[in-house]
Structures are given as C-alpha cells and as structure tokens.
C-alpha cells in the first residue's frame, strides 16, 4: 500500500512534498520560481488587512456599501482584491439584531483575497463540527456573548460562494477616517467569531 494511503500520518511529510515538487519540476509541470513568487504573495500581500479596507470603506461610503452588498465580487475587485477563493463574494452584514458567522463544514473554504489563508482553528474539526449546531457556545469561547433575542445566522460555505462578514461599526468612531477604521477591523470580526475593536482598545 502506498505511503499516502495508509491510515496514519505520512512519515517525513515535508520530504514527500519535496519529492513531488522535484518530480513535477523535472517533468515540466511546474516552475519552482513561480512557486517562490506565490509564497511571497501570501506572506506579504494577501491577508485580512485587505478585507479590513473593504469594510472600512463600506462604513464611510454609503454608495460603496450599497454596491458591496449587491455585488460583493465586483465591489471588492474594485479595490484590487480578486481571484483564487474569492471568485464569488457575498458580504453579510451584522446589525443590532443579527449576528453572522461563517464556516465550511465540508472542507475549509475561506475568502483568500480578503482574509488570506485560514487560521488552523477555522480548518479544525471542533470548529467545523460545532459552530453549526451550537454557534452560541462556540462564540462564547471566542468571548462573544450573544443575547437571546439576537438572531445568530450560521453560513456554511457549501458551494463556490465565499462569505465576508461586515461587523458593526464601533461606537465612538464618528470622526475616524477610513485608515483609522480599518485598524479596528480584525480577521475574526470578518469571520463572525469576533467584533470590530472599540477605539483605544
């Protein structure tokens, strides 16, 4: 039985990755230099700061927000964020009566162009198994206590739509500009396991 099919972890998995990469390069299927470029893109440019800029713009610009809610993909692309795992974007808005939280129970679908690569907990069995059946308990572990009369909406990304939560704009930020607001928008607040930060925190 081949190594990768055994009912245990692959031994020296990093070396098997290296084995596959070297074979694919020799056979002309990949260019290792283009792989370097890709790693650099994820380490430097693709991350939740992108999503934070989208949210901050929507907070200050009602026309942009309208567009973002209607056609998330196009509105997000207009700021330069598009492509792999962000091909079809839907933005869902938190309000005083609705709290949204996103999961992918079947794998780990996540909007890469706006949030980067998912954290391990998002891909983990406990989060994927539990947040659909006991979202309030999971959110409590993240420090969020959701009142009984607030509706919790759990979005399971079962298809090719990718969801970005628009958290509520924190109180006391009336005089903040877009860049200052973006600083308050955390990754977790755009997944729904957190809120935007209060100013000064």
């Amino acid at each position: 039985m081949a190594l990768a099919q055994e009912n245990v972890l692959i031994p020296d998995v990093g070396l098997r990755v290296k084995a596959l990469e070297s074979l694919l390069a020799e056979k002309g299927a990949i260019d290792p230099k283009s792989l370097d470029l890709l790693v650099e893109a994820f380490e430097t440019r693709i991350g939740p700061k992108n999503g934070a800029k989208v949210i901050a713009k929507a907070w200050v610009d009602p026309e942009y927000k309208k567009w973002l809610m209607k056609d998330g993909t196009a509105a997000i692309k207009s700021l330069g964020y598009s492509g792999v795992q962000g091909e079809n974007m839907v933005v869902i808005e938190n309000t005083p009566t609705v709290h949204n939280v996103v999961v992918c129970t079947l794998c780990s679908c996540y909007p890469w162009p706006t949030l980067g690569l998912p954290p391990i907990w998002f891909k983990s069995a406990p989060y994927r198994a539990r947040v659909v059946i006991e979202p309030r308990a999971v959110l409590r572990e993240f420090g969020l206590e959701i009142a009984d009369d607030v509706e919790v909406r759990v979005w399971d990304s079962t298809a090719e739509l990718r969801y970005l939560v628009m958290p509520m704009r924190p109180a006391g930020t009336e005089n903040f500009n877009e860049a200052q607001l973006a600083e308050l928008v955390t990754r977790d607040s755009m997944i729904g396991t957190g809120l935007a930060l209060a100013p000064g925190k």
Partner: peptide
C-alpha cells in the same frame, strides 16, 4: 469523514 457538521465530541476550538 469530512462531513462533520453537527458531530459531537471534538472538544473546544483551540486558537493559536
């Protein structure tokens, strides 16, 4: 085995 939505027993969500 990937279809785990709603399963019990995985324990708390561990955040690094």
């Amino acid at each position: 085995i990937h279809d785990i939505g709603g399963k019990h027993g995985f324990g708390p969500v561990v955040v690094e």
